[in-house]
């Protein structure tokens, strides 16, 4: 019996690992955000340095900052925590976190037709104009894509991103 338990423990240790039972919700959102940037294409000329802007979630801002540090991509990307919408046009990716309707309207007001990838983490934010909705269920995060709106702004997504989206509109 003892040998069987030992064998089982060693066997389990070597089995393929499904990664990370250790990321918080914001760390996971930061990782998604980074991956979204890799599978998105901005209209020419491509930005020299991708600007990730975060609204309404300081913990997410810190998580993106930490991710850039661990991935060593500070030279090609920067993260900005936006206090107001005046700088929103400087963003390449704008993450609107837990914003209500009025707040979302405020942030999107000056961005009509701008090639800015807007990501929201509520279904309301997605319906209101975000190109990607990064939305949680009880166990996981999944994302939806508004391809029509993205194309209208000159943005495009890779086929891989479109395949993994839970819904494409």
């Amino acid at each position: 019996m003892t040998k069987a338990i030992i064998a089982l423990c060693i066997f389990i240790s070597y089995l393929p690992f499904s990664y990370a039972q250790g990321l918080s919700e914001n760390e996971l959102k930061a990782a998604f955000l980074y991956r979204f940037s890799q599978f998105s294409k901005w209209p020419p000329p491509p930005p020299d340095k991708l600007s990730f802007c975060v609204v309404g979630n300081h913990e997410l801002y810190k998580a993106v900052l930490a991710l850039f540090d661990t991935q060593n991509i500070q030279n090609s990307s920067e993260v900005i925590e936006l206090p107001s919408n005046e700088q929103a046009q400087l963003c390449d990716i704008l993450f609107l976190s837990q914003q209500n309707r009025q707040q979302t309207q405020y942030w999107l007001a000056e961005l009509e037709h701008q090639p800015i990838l807007v990501v929201a983490d509520t279904s309301e934010g997605f319906r209101q104009g975000a190109m990607i909705g990064l939305i949680a269920d009880a166990n996981n995060l999944s994302f939806r894509i508004n391809l029509t709106d993205a194309k209208r702004r000159g943005l495009n997504f890779s086929a891989h991103l479109l395949k993994l989206a839970s819904e494409v509109r």
Binding site: A20, Q21, F32, Q98, I135, A136, D137, N140, L164
Partner: peptide
């Protein structure tokens, strides 16, 4: 990205 989608949240999500 595929692995991220399979990632179990170890906290309760802010919103579902």
């Amino acid at each position: 990205l595929e692995a991220l989608l399979g990632q179990q949240l170890n906290q309760l999500p802010t919103n579902t």
